[in-house]
Design a protein around this nucleic acid. Structure first.
Lengths: 144, 144
DNA sequence: GTTTGATGTTACTTTATATGTTACATCAGC
DNA sequence: GCTGATGTAACATATAAAGTAACATCAAAC
């Protein structure tokens, strides 16, 4: 399949909503920034809303963060938009008649869990606020 | 796309080669354990050979690990078989005219690098020998 | 209250990547 | 030489992501 950009695009949307909170926040305008399409933006905003990160109102282009960007971690966003949050995947079709095939799945699941935990710990340490700061810092460095 | 099982299958192959080092190591036999097909096994073995983890000989079903399983980490195997080793992917098509679109890519790359480093550190701490031990321990627990 | 333009959601299409399948050149061992 | 193995490539299929289009529903302005 194509590699997923859902996390990147969801962060983009939240950063945009935060930075331009008094500007035009229609899905079409945000889609222009993401270089994507309004339906994708609305789909992702729906997932962010269901995860409690964003409020929206049907008919009105007024999305808002539900809490300060310092209190939204990349892990929150990741879990909101990636339904299969697993970074690595066990092959679940191996031969149960074979010693290796019968026992490797559980063994690998344990091993992959360690990797997943380490990755999620890093995602949890980084906040939307830090991403926004990174964007604005880079922007200011360019214009000065 | 489908989720990749290449890492899982490559570990499976190496574990099989190690455990059954004096048995039948043809790609067809290994494929039966993976419940896959010989061509996939040979493709993965080719990648493992190019990464210096395995020796093979054309015409002869005699693959061997190049070093002890304690000296082969899951990171070695991961890098051998996953050409795009990135766990997270930046959307590289964002609007350069927009403050957010123009600066989010580099910002996210930095953020994702942290996650990647943490995940790779965990992959590096786990060895093929540990996976083999996990497989054999589970097997013995079943038959006793 | 009608018009306009927004979101919410779904169905369908397109694209990209992983895996399966087949074929065949090449080599080892008898 | 014969048999059966690997190495590799071409092609087909499966699956998930993202694009597209349509439309019901709602908000705001008039």
């Amino acid at each position: 399949m194509r590699y997923s950009h859902k996390l990147s695009d969801a962060i983009h949307i939240l950063a945009y909503v935060s930075i331009y909170q008094d500007g035009d926040l229609s899905s079409a305008t945000i889609a222009a920034s993401v270089e994507s399409n309004p339906a994708l933006v609305r789909r992702l905003m729906g997932a962010l809303r269901r995860a409690g990160l964003l409020t929206t109102q049907q008919g009105s282009a007024t999305p808002k963060l539900t809490r300060d960007a310092t209190a939204i971690t990349l892990l929150d966003i990741y879990r909101a938009v990636e339904e299969d949050g697993n970074l690595l995947h066990v092959d679940d079709k191996t031969n149960p008649q074979c010693v290796v095939g019968a026992n490797i799945q559980d063994t690998l699941r344990e091993a992959y869990d360690e990797v997943q935990r380490a990755a999620e710990a890093q995602l949890e340490q980084q906040t939307l606020a830090q991403i926004i700061a990174g964007i604005l810092t880079r922007h200011h460095a360019k214009i000065h």
